[in-house]
Design a protein around this nucleic acid. Structure first.
Lengths: 343, 343
DNA sequence: CTGAAAGCGCTTACAG
DNA sequence: CTGAAAGCGCTTACAG
């Protein structure tokens, strides 16, 4: 491979000029620039990323840290991030935490040091230590799904979104509303979203003077299977059966619908179901849901750190909250007239 | 940040020894190694990736090139890749082609040069030029979904898998079997899978002496919406209506089921549907499908290139075909007794 | 607008 | 087993 000195020789200039001409920085005479470009073209030259990184300290790379790559909602956010990155000419390094060991490697070992110009953390509750380890990187960090004072951030208003969903069920006449709550992957820290969506649920109930019933809450994984298990748990409970459930994700809602049908119950005839996310398949499943703009959350976070990388970037982390939308489909209806729900 | 010379000084050795001790290569006395490790620990030293790359020529990074990050099946493959990479301590650079422009940037501009030690290409039909651009990288390349002589590769036997699925429909008594075929994202080159699955479909029909009917084939995007459109197209055709359809992906099958229900047709009462992939939601949708081990395809491809990176790696590209499995659920049944399908 | 030169921080034959 | 030194290929003040 030709290197920068080959190009310099061919163009009859110094390597410094080649570097400037190729990157379009500094003052280079038009004619000189032209000669350099031509020489580079002729020699099939492309700059060595490793050398450029070492000399400049810039990597042209952004890390995206996710709990689970293959979960639908993360795919959406990643897509949003990727589009912005691609346009800006940045590379994306994807880190899947997957388990405690992966997590340790990422934070404790400071895996990211020197590898990226910025970090995007998607829906990950972090300990104080983990946050400090990120701060120690001294690069812009944006969090999707929470607003931390020390980082950029973008999220939806989970309390409001959940309240709206549950209000709708209340308006339909439901009084026994179950909550299918998701837990973060390591079962350790609950993430803001989980807590907030529960708060919204409780607020809506309180507004309507409906007594909250702990027996109507079930916690499980953020997945089809989790939703199915949580629903099954509620159905097998000794207490009141719900006539409607609010799930923390559409995938949980799908699992719940499946569990209900397996128990011989109809949606929405016996139990109404409302989900959260705006999954591709929600339409096919006729699922009412709270739509959140996942790809946009990713794009915004990405733009935040990219802006911070610029010379006139913000000095302080910027935070942003984006709106959600309740989309009603066939999975929600008034409760059966007996008002007692499925027997 | 402490650099390698700080560690060397602290440990009372040369930087060469620090480098060897830290990486565990070459001969280093146990006591020396110990002192180096301790010094590095004390100083909070971590090697500069940029410097290490420049000096060694290795990046510790593998590129994964996909047409669409957020499609379910790619997420599965990526997860398989990622698990292997994480264990091996490699980073993953994710490139989403998305459109012709992204594609051009990847191949023509040789974006990958100097950035990675190996490349994994997922389900991407490539032109001769694109393949040459990959070869020019002079790093191991593995393709998932096709077997190219010049690259490592892993795939399923699409012909056999499709044949098995269609045979099942034939055994049930269907004679008018539709094909919902997927097209690659840029509508340009058909990918091996698409072609092969159609071959399997035609072979199964031929075996059963069933005349293939071009009016029963529809081509659309590999998505819910694509499946819905393709199904709608078949239903609105002037020719014979199918009593069963074989879709190239579960997502297409979901879309088809949706389209059928919207037309007042029942699955499998009026039309049987069989999908392909083994999607998370296939169980909830009661979809019969051909299960392919997507994550495993990713892991295998990744292991192929990682092995090639080792000193005793294979000289020639290795190819592998993994088995699929037909899983029957409630979306397939014998045709209505009239034998003419939905009216 | 352009060049000489230092510097980025490692790795790796080579010698001993 | 260990070290001196070259080399990896750029970028960037600094000077002119």
């Amino acid at each position: 491979m030709a290197d920068i000195s080959d190009v310099a020789r061919q163009a009859g200039v110094s390597t410094a000029t080649v570097s400037r001409a190729l990157r379009g920085v500094g003052r280079v005479a038009e004619a000189t620039r032209h000669r350099v470009l031509e020489a580079a073209e002729q020699l099939g030259y492309s700059v060595s990323p490793s050398a450029s990184r070492l000399a400049s300290g810039r990597t042209g790379t952004v890390a995206v840290v996710v709990p689970f790559v293959s979960r639908w909602s993360f795919g959406q956010v990643i897509e949003g991030v990727e589009a912005v990155l691609r346009t800006a000419g940045f590379d994306m390094l994807l880190y899947n935490l997957a388990d405690a060991e992966g997590r340790r490697r990422m934070f404790a070992d400071n895996r990211l040091r020197g590898r990226v110009d910025a970090v995007l953390v998607l829906y990950l509750p972090m300990t104080q230590e983990e946050k400090e380890s990120l701060s120690a990187l001294e690069v812009p960090v944006a969090v999707v799904g929470a607003l931390e004072p020390e980082f950029f951030g973008v999220r939806i208003d989970d309390v409001a979104a959940a309240r709206t969903a549950v209000r709708h069920l209340l308006h339909l006449g439901h009084r026994h509303i179950g909550l299918l709550s998701g837990v973060p992957y390591d079962q350790g820290m609950p993430f803001t979203s989980q807590v907030d969506r529960r708060v919204g649920y409780l607020e809506a109930l309180a507004e309507a003077d409906v007594q909250a019933d702990p027996a109507l809450e079930a916690v499980a994984e953020f997945s089809i299977d989790g939703g199915s298990k949580a629903m099954t748990h509620l159905l097998s409970g000794r207490g009141t059966l719900p006539t409607a459930v609010f799930a923390h994700s559409d995938e949980m809602a799908f699992g719940a619908m499946h569990a209900l049908r397996r128990s011989g119950l109809e949606v929405p005839g016996d139990v109404s179901v409302i989900g959260f996310d705006g999954h591709d398949l929600a339409e096919v499943m006729a699922l009412s849901t709270v739509i959140q703009p996942l790809a946009e959350l990713g794009s915004i976070a990405c733009e935040q750190v990219l802006a911070a990388l610029g010379t006139d970037g913000p000095a302080e982390p910027v935070h942003r909250v984006v709106p959600t939308e309740l989309l009603l489909r066939g999975s929600t209806a008034p409760p059966a007239t007996t008002g007692t729900g499925p027997s």
